[in-house]
Nucleic acid binder design. Structure first.
Length: 361
DNA sequence: GAGGCGTGGAA
DNA sequence: TTTCCAAGCCT
Protein backbone atom coordinates (compact mmCIF):
# COMPACT_ATOMS: atom_id res chain seq x y z
CA UNK A 1 0.00 0.00 0.00
CA UNK A 2 2.73 2.41 0.92
CA UNK A 3 5.11 3.75 -1.65
CA UNK A 4 2.82 5.11 -4.35
CA UNK A 5 1.53 8.63 -4.46
CA UNK A 6 2.79 9.75 -1.10
CA UNK A 7 3.07 13.42 -0.50
CA UNK A 8 6.58 14.21 0.61
CA UNK A 9 5.28 17.44 2.11
CA UNK A 10 3.68 18.13 5.48
CA UNK A 11 -0.10 18.41 5.62
CA UNK A 12 -1.39 21.86 4.95
CA UNK A 13 -3.21 23.60 7.77
CA UNK A 14 -6.83 24.71 7.57
CA UNK A 15 -5.63 28.30 7.66
CA UNK A 16 -3.28 27.73 4.73
CA UNK A 17 -6.04 26.10 2.69
CA UNK A 18 -8.55 28.84 3.49
CA UNK A 19 -6.06 31.51 2.47
CA UNK A 20 -5.23 29.68 -0.75
CA UNK A 21 -8.91 29.39 -1.71
CA UNK A 22 -9.42 33.06 -0.95
CA UNK A 23 -6.46 34.09 -3.10
CA UNK A 24 -7.73 31.87 -5.88
CA UNK A 25 -11.19 33.47 -5.88
CA UNK A 26 -9.69 36.97 -5.76
CA UNK A 27 -7.58 36.09 -8.78
CA UNK A 28 -10.67 34.66 -10.53
CA UNK A 29 -12.57 37.93 -10.01
CA UNK A 30 -9.69 39.79 -11.58
CA UNK A 31 -8.47 37.43 -14.30
CA UNK A 32 -11.14 34.79 -14.83
CA UNK A 33 -12.39 34.36 -18.37
CA UNK A 34 -15.70 35.68 -19.65
CA UNK A 35 -17.38 32.71 -21.31
CA UNK A 36 -20.82 32.58 -22.93
CA UNK A 37 -22.12 29.96 -20.49
CA UNK A 38 -20.78 31.72 -17.38
CA UNK A 39 -22.58 34.01 -14.95
CA UNK A 40 -21.35 36.27 -12.15
CA UNK A 41 -21.81 35.19 -8.57
CA UNK A 42 -24.31 35.12 -6.91
CA UNK A 43 -26.13 34.45 -10.16
CA UNK A 44 -25.83 30.81 -11.21
CA UNK A 45 -25.58 29.68 -14.83
CA UNK A 46 -28.72 28.01 -16.22
CA UNK A 47 -28.39 24.21 -15.92
CA UNK A 48 -29.07 23.65 -19.63
CA UNK A 49 -26.20 25.94 -20.61
CA UNK A 50 -23.86 24.23 -18.14
CA UNK A 51 -24.95 20.81 -19.45
CA UNK A 52 -24.39 21.85 -23.08
CA UNK A 53 -21.01 23.48 -22.44
CA UNK A 54 -19.69 20.70 -20.23
CA UNK A 55 -20.56 17.97 -22.73
CA UNK A 56 -18.84 19.97 -25.48
CA UNK A 57 -15.80 20.75 -23.33
CA UNK A 58 -14.96 17.10 -22.63
CA UNK A 59 -11.44 16.74 -24.06
CA UNK A 60 -12.05 19.81 -26.22
CA UNK A 61 -10.61 23.33 -26.03
CA UNK A 62 -12.67 26.38 -25.12
CA UNK A 63 -11.91 28.09 -28.43
CA UNK A 64 -13.20 25.10 -30.39
CA UNK A 65 -16.36 24.88 -28.29
CA UNK A 66 -17.57 28.51 -28.30
CA UNK A 67 -18.96 28.67 -31.87
CA UNK A 68 -20.66 25.28 -31.50
CA UNK A 69 -22.12 26.31 -28.14
CA UNK A 70 -23.54 29.50 -29.66
CA UNK A 71 -25.00 27.62 -32.62
CA UNK A 72 -26.62 24.99 -30.42
CA UNK A 73 -28.17 27.56 -28.05
CA UNK A 74 -29.51 29.54 -30.99
CA UNK A 75 -30.96 26.46 -32.68
CA UNK A 76 -32.13 24.59 -29.56
CA UNK A 77 -32.61 27.20 -26.79
CA UNK A 78 -34.09 24.77 -24.26
CA UNK A 79 -33.68 21.19 -23.14
CA UNK A 80 -37.14 20.51 -24.57
CA UNK A 81 -36.12 21.82 -27.99
CA UNK A 82 -33.01 19.64 -27.98
CA UNK A 83 -35.04 16.60 -26.92
CA UNK A 84 -37.44 17.21 -29.81
CA UNK A 85 -34.65 17.27 -32.41
CA UNK A 86 -33.74 14.25 -34.52
CA UNK A 87 -30.45 12.55 -33.66
CA UNK A 88 -29.20 12.99 -37.22
CA UNK A 89 -29.56 16.78 -37.12
CA UNK A 90 -27.88 16.96 -33.71
CA UNK A 91 -24.98 14.88 -35.04
CA UNK A 92 -24.62 17.04 -38.14
CA UNK A 93 -24.64 20.20 -36.02
CA UNK A 94 -21.90 18.59 -33.91
CA UNK A 95 -19.85 17.63 -37.02
CA UNK A 96 -16.27 18.87 -36.72
CA UNK A 97 -16.23 18.91 -32.91
CA UNK A 98 -15.25 15.26 -32.57
CA UNK A 99 -16.01 12.48 -30.08
CA UNK A 100 -19.47 12.00 -31.55
CA UNK A 101 -20.63 9.63 -28.80
CA UNK A 102 -20.91 12.82 -26.75
CA UNK A 103 -23.57 14.15 -29.11
CA UNK A 104 -25.47 10.87 -29.18
CA UNK A 105 -25.36 10.61 -25.37
CA UNK A 106 -26.21 14.27 -24.83
CA UNK A 107 -29.27 13.89 -27.02
CA UNK A 108 -30.33 10.74 -25.13
CA UNK A 109 -29.79 12.52 -21.80
CA UNK A 110 -31.92 15.48 -22.94
CA UNK A 111 -34.76 13.13 -23.82
CA UNK A 112 -34.47 11.36 -20.45
CA UNK A 113 -34.50 14.64 -18.54
CA UNK A 114 -37.63 15.74 -20.38
CA UNK A 115 -39.36 12.34 -20.15
CA UNK A 116 -38.40 11.33 -16.62
CA UNK A 117 -37.70 14.63 -14.82
CA UNK A 118 -40.21 16.93 -16.56
CA UNK A 119 -37.37 18.92 -18.07
CA UNK A 120 -35.82 19.78 -14.69
CA UNK A 121 -32.17 18.85 -14.23
CA UNK A 122 -31.34 16.69 -11.21
CA UNK A 123 -29.22 18.65 -8.71
CA UNK A 124 -27.26 15.81 -7.10
CA UNK A 125 -24.14 14.36 -8.74
CA UNK A 126 -25.35 10.77 -8.18
CA UNK A 127 -28.53 11.43 -10.18
CA UNK A 128 -26.66 13.30 -12.89
CA UNK A 129 -24.11 10.50 -13.16
CA UNK A 130 -26.90 8.08 -14.11
CA UNK A 131 -27.52 9.98 -17.36
CA UNK A 132 -25.72 8.85 -20.54
CA UNK A 133 -22.53 10.78 -21.29
CA UNK A 134 -22.34 12.22 -17.77
CA UNK A 135 -19.55 10.75 -15.65
CA UNK A 136 -18.00 11.79 -12.35
CA UNK A 137 -16.45 14.99 -13.67
CA UNK A 138 -19.46 16.31 -15.60
CA UNK A 139 -21.90 15.36 -12.83
CA UNK A 140 -19.81 17.29 -10.31
CA UNK A 141 -19.44 20.24 -12.67
CA UNK A 142 -23.19 20.59 -13.30
CA UNK A 143 -24.02 20.13 -9.61
CA UNK A 144 -21.44 22.69 -8.53
CA UNK A 145 -21.71 25.28 -11.29
CA UNK A 146 -25.48 25.27 -11.86
CA UNK A 147 -26.65 24.38 -8.32
CA UNK A 148 -23.81 25.48 -6.02
CA UNK A 149 -23.47 21.96 -4.63
CA UNK A 150 -20.26 21.00 -2.75
CA UNK A 151 -19.55 18.22 -5.28
CA UNK A 152 -15.97 17.29 -6.20
CA UNK A 153 -15.06 18.61 -9.65
CA UNK A 154 -11.84 17.06 -10.90
CA UNK A 155 -10.92 17.48 -14.54
CA UNK A 156 -7.48 17.45 -16.17
CA UNK A 157 -6.79 21.06 -15.20
CA UNK A 158 -7.75 20.66 -11.56
CA UNK A 159 -5.89 17.36 -11.41
CA UNK A 160 -2.74 19.13 -12.57
CA UNK A 161 -3.16 22.10 -10.22
CA UNK A 162 -3.79 19.87 -7.19
CA UNK A 163 -0.99 17.44 -8.05
CA UNK A 164 1.38 20.38 -7.92
CA UNK A 165 -0.18 22.23 -4.98
CA UNK A 166 -0.09 19.10 -2.78
CA UNK A 167 2.96 17.53 -4.49
CA UNK A 168 1.24 14.24 -5.33
CA UNK A 169 3.25 11.93 -7.56
CA UNK A 170 0.85 9.07 -8.27
CA UNK A 171 0.97 8.55 -12.05
CA UNK A 172 -2.07 9.36 -14.17
CA UNK A 173 -4.77 8.17 -14.49
CA UNK A 174 -4.83 6.65 -10.98
CA UNK A 175 -4.21 10.06 -9.40
CA UNK A 176 -7.73 11.35 -10.08
CA UNK A 177 -9.40 9.04 -7.54
CA UNK A 178 -7.00 10.21 -4.84
CA UNK A 179 -7.88 13.86 -5.30
CA UNK A 180 -11.44 13.84 -3.93
CA UNK A 181 -10.38 14.52 -0.34
CA UNK A 182 -7.66 17.07 -1.19
CA UNK A 183 -10.20 18.88 -3.38
CA UNK A 184 -12.82 18.91 -0.64
CA UNK A 185 -10.31 20.27 1.89
CA UNK A 186 -9.58 23.21 -0.35
CA UNK A 187 -13.23 23.88 -1.30
CA UNK A 188 -14.51 26.94 0.62
CA UNK A 189 -18.01 27.26 2.10
CA UNK A 190 -18.84 30.28 -0.04
CA UNK A 191 -18.88 30.49 -3.84
CA UNK A 192 -18.76 26.74 -4.37
CA UNK A 193 -19.96 27.41 -7.91
CA UNK A 194 -17.04 29.70 -8.74
CA UNK A 195 -14.39 27.59 -7.07
CA UNK A 196 -14.00 24.80 -9.67
CA UNK A 197 -14.22 27.32 -12.50
CA UNK A 198 -11.47 29.35 -10.84
CA UNK A 199 -9.29 26.24 -10.50
CA UNK A 200 -9.88 25.33 -14.15
CA UNK A 201 -9.05 28.83 -15.35
CA UNK A 202 -5.91 28.72 -13.23
CA UNK A 203 -4.93 25.44 -14.88
CA UNK A 204 -5.68 26.78 -18.34
CA UNK A 205 -4.01 30.20 -17.94
CA UNK A 206 -1.30 29.96 -15.24
CA UNK A 207 -0.63 26.40 -14.05
CA UNK A 208 -0.28 25.11 -17.60
CA UNK A 209 1.12 21.68 -18.51
CA UNK A 210 4.49 22.78 -19.90
CA UNK A 211 5.32 26.26 -18.58
CA UNK A 212 3.52 27.18 -15.37
CA UNK A 213 3.82 30.89 -14.58
CA UNK A 214 4.41 30.51 -10.85
CA UNK A 215 5.41 34.16 -10.44
CA UNK A 216 1.80 35.30 -10.87
CA UNK A 217 0.02 32.26 -9.41
CA UNK A 218 -2.39 32.98 -6.52
CA UNK A 219 -1.61 29.54 -5.04
CA UNK A 220 2.17 29.92 -5.17
CA UNK A 221 2.68 30.81 -1.52
CA UNK A 222 1.62 27.39 -0.24
CA UNK A 223 2.24 25.35 -3.38
CA UNK A 224 4.39 22.30 -2.64
CA UNK A 225 5.70 22.07 -6.21
CA UNK A 226 6.89 25.67 -6.13
CA UNK A 227 10.22 24.62 -4.65
CA UNK A 228 10.88 22.07 -7.40
CA UNK A 229 13.34 23.10 -10.07
CA UNK A 230 10.67 22.18 -12.61
CA UNK A 231 7.06 22.01 -11.33
CA UNK A 232 5.91 20.78 -14.74
CA UNK A 233 7.18 17.25 -13.94
CA UNK A 234 3.88 16.93 -12.05
CA UNK A 235 1.52 15.27 -12.59
CA UNK A 236 3.42 12.11 -13.62
CA UNK A 237 2.17 10.98 -17.02
CA UNK A 238 2.17 7.42 -18.41
CA UNK A 239 4.15 6.55 -21.53
CA UNK A 240 2.24 6.89 -24.78
CA UNK A 241 1.79 4.32 -27.48
CA UNK A 242 2.75 4.94 -31.09
CA UNK A 243 -0.09 5.36 -33.58
CA UNK A 244 -0.28 2.87 -36.46
CA UNK A 245 -1.24 4.00 -39.97
CA UNK A 246 -4.21 2.31 -41.61
CA UNK A 247 -4.60 2.35 -45.40
CA UNK A 248 -8.07 2.84 -46.80
CA UNK A 249 -9.93 4.00 -49.87
CA UNK A 250 -12.98 6.14 -50.46
CA UNK A 251 -15.28 6.54 -53.43
CA UNK A 252 -16.40 10.02 -54.51
CA UNK A 253 -19.22 9.21 -56.89
CA UNK A 254 -20.79 12.28 -58.54
CA UNK A 255 -24.15 12.64 -60.23
CA UNK A 256 -23.17 15.61 -62.41
CA UNK A 257 -25.49 17.96 -60.50
CA UNK A 258 -23.26 18.82 -57.58
CA UNK A 259 -24.30 15.83 -55.52
CA UNK A 260 -22.24 12.90 -54.31
CA UNK A 261 -23.16 9.42 -53.12
CA UNK A 262 -23.04 9.23 -49.33
CA UNK A 263 -23.80 6.61 -46.70
CA UNK A 264 -24.80 6.97 -43.06
CA UNK A 265 -22.34 5.18 -40.85
CA UNK A 266 -23.36 2.57 -38.26
CA UNK A 267 -24.74 4.03 -35.06
CA UNK A 268 -21.85 3.16 -32.77
CA UNK A 269 -18.09 3.34 -32.86
CA UNK A 270 -15.89 5.48 -35.07
CA UNK A 271 -17.83 8.44 -36.54
CA UNK A 272 -20.96 6.55 -35.51
CA UNK A 273 -24.18 7.85 -37.00
CA UNK A 274 -22.48 10.42 -39.22
CA UNK A 275 -22.71 10.71 -43.00
CA UNK A 276 -19.66 9.94 -45.11
CA UNK A 277 -18.33 8.71 -48.44
CA UNK A 278 -18.44 4.97 -49.08
CA UNK A 279 -15.08 3.66 -47.97
CA UNK A 280 -13.26 0.62 -46.70
CA UNK A 281 -9.99 -0.62 -45.24
CA UNK A 282 -9.39 2.10 -42.67
CA UNK A 283 -11.99 1.34 -40.01
CA UNK A 284 -13.24 -1.87 -38.45
CA UNK A 285 -16.77 -1.63 -39.81
CA UNK A 286 -18.06 -3.98 -42.53
CA UNK A 287 -16.63 -2.81 -45.86
CA UNK A 288 -18.88 -1.14 -48.37
CA UNK A 289 -19.14 -3.14 -51.62
CA UNK A 290 -16.68 -0.87 -53.39
CA UNK A 291 -15.19 -3.49 -55.72
CA UNK A 292 -18.56 -4.35 -57.18
CA UNK A 293 -19.46 -0.70 -57.71
CA UNK A 294 -16.10 0.19 -59.17
CA UNK A 295 -16.33 -2.62 -61.75
CA UNK A 296 -19.12 -0.79 -63.55
CA UNK A 297 -17.42 2.61 -63.46
CA UNK A 298 -14.47 4.32 -65.06
CA UNK A 299 -12.91 5.56 -61.85
CA UNK A 300 -9.94 7.88 -61.66
CA UNK A 301 -7.48 7.23 -58.84
CA UNK A 302 -6.01 10.38 -57.29
CA UNK A 303 -2.21 10.15 -57.02
CA UNK A 304 -2.00 11.85 -53.61
CA UNK A 305 -3.58 10.37 -50.52
CA UNK A 306 -5.74 12.09 -47.94
CA UNK A 307 -4.33 11.77 -44.43
CA UNK A 308 -6.20 12.25 -41.18
CA UNK A 309 -5.25 11.48 -37.59
CA UNK A 310 -7.69 9.98 -35.12
CA UNK A 311 -7.15 9.39 -31.42
CA UNK A 312 -5.35 6.08 -31.84
CA UNK A 313 -4.34 5.77 -35.52
CA UNK A 314 -3.52 7.63 -38.73
CA UNK A 315 -5.72 7.04 -41.75
CA UNK A 316 -4.20 7.27 -45.24
CA UNK A 317 -6.94 7.28 -47.86
CA UNK A 318 -6.77 6.60 -51.59
CA UNK A 319 -9.50 8.44 -53.50
CA UNK A 320 -11.49 6.97 -56.38
CA UNK A 321 -13.38 9.53 -58.48
CA UNK A 322 -16.20 8.60 -60.82
CA UNK A 323 -19.37 9.88 -62.49
CA UNK A 324 -22.52 7.83 -62.03
CA UNK A 325 -23.88 6.39 -65.25
CA UNK A 326 -27.48 6.41 -64.16
CA UNK A 327 -27.43 3.03 -62.46
CA UNK A 328 -29.20 2.66 -59.13
CA UNK A 329 -27.24 3.21 -55.95
CA UNK A 330 -26.71 0.29 -53.58
CA UNK A 331 -29.10 0.02 -50.63
CA UNK A 332 -28.39 2.63 -47.99
CA UNK A 333 -26.51 4.98 -50.32
CA UNK A 334 -28.06 8.36 -51.07
CA UNK A 335 -27.34 11.50 -53.07
CA UNK A 336 -26.54 14.70 -51.16
CA UNK A 337 -24.71 17.99 -51.61
CA UNK A 338 -21.58 17.55 -49.47
CA UNK A 339 -21.27 21.27 -48.63
CA UNK A 340 -24.79 21.20 -47.20
CA UNK A 341 -24.23 18.01 -45.20
CA UNK A 342 -22.69 17.95 -41.73
CA UNK A 343 -19.63 15.86 -42.54
CA UNK A 344 -16.89 14.86 -40.07
CA UNK A 345 -13.43 16.22 -40.83
CA UNK A 346 -12.00 13.20 -42.64
CA UNK A 347 -14.95 13.26 -45.04
CA UNK A 348 -14.60 17.02 -45.55
CA UNK A 349 -10.94 16.50 -46.45
CA UNK A 350 -11.90 13.77 -48.92
CA UNK A 351 -14.49 16.04 -50.56
CA UNK A 352 -12.07 18.96 -50.66
CA UNK A 353 -9.34 16.84 -52.25
CA UNK A 354 -11.71 15.35 -54.82
CA UNK A 355 -12.80 18.80 -55.98
CA UNK A 356 -9.44 20.56 -56.08
CA UNK A 357 -6.97 17.75 -56.49
CA UNK A 358 -5.08 19.40 -53.65
CA UNK A 359 -4.24 17.42 -50.54
CA UNK A 360 -4.20 19.75 -47.57
CA UNK A 361 -2.93 17.39 -44.90
C1' DG B 1 -7.46 -0.99 -15.83
C1' DA B 2 -6.76 -0.32 -20.51
C1' DG B 3 -8.28 0.78 -24.97
C1' DG B 4 -11.64 3.09 -28.18
C1' DC B 5 -13.18 7.40 -29.40
C1' DG B 6 -11.92 13.47 -33.08
C1' DT B 7 -10.13 17.58 -33.89
C1' DG B 8 -7.19 21.53 -34.98
C1' DG B 9 -3.92 24.59 -32.82
C1' DA B 10 0.48 25.13 -30.51
C1' DA B 11 5.22 23.76 -29.52
C1' DT C 1 6.81 16.92 -39.63
C1' DT C 2 5.71 15.03 -35.37
C1' DT C 3 4.12 15.34 -30.83
C1' DC C 4 1.14 16.85 -27.44
C1' DC C 5 -2.55 17.92 -26.15
C1' DA C 6 -8.13 20.18 -24.22
C1' DA C 7 -13.30 21.02 -18.86
C1' DG C 8 -13.86 12.51 -20.09
C1' DC C 9 -16.95 8.68 -20.78
C1' DC C 10 -17.98 3.98 -21.95
C1' DT C 11 -16.95 -0.84 -22.31
Amino acid sequence: MAGKGRSARPEKTAAQLAAAASHLLDWYDRAGRQLPWRRHWPELAPPYLVFLSELMLQQTSVTAVIPYFQAFVRRWPTIEALADADQAEVLEAWAGLGYYARARNMHKAARLIVARHEGRFPEQPEQLCALPGIGPYTAGAIAAIAFDQPAPVIDGNIERVLARFYHLDTPLPALKKQLVTPYSRLLPDQRRSDFPQALMDLGALICTPARPDCAVCPLARDCSARQLADPSILPVKPAKKAKPTRQGRALVLLDGQGRAALIRRAGKGLLGGLPGFPSDGWDRSPPEPLDRILEGLEARILPAKVRHTFTHFHASMTLCLAEAGGADLPAGWFWAVPEETGLPSLMKKIWQASQTGQISD
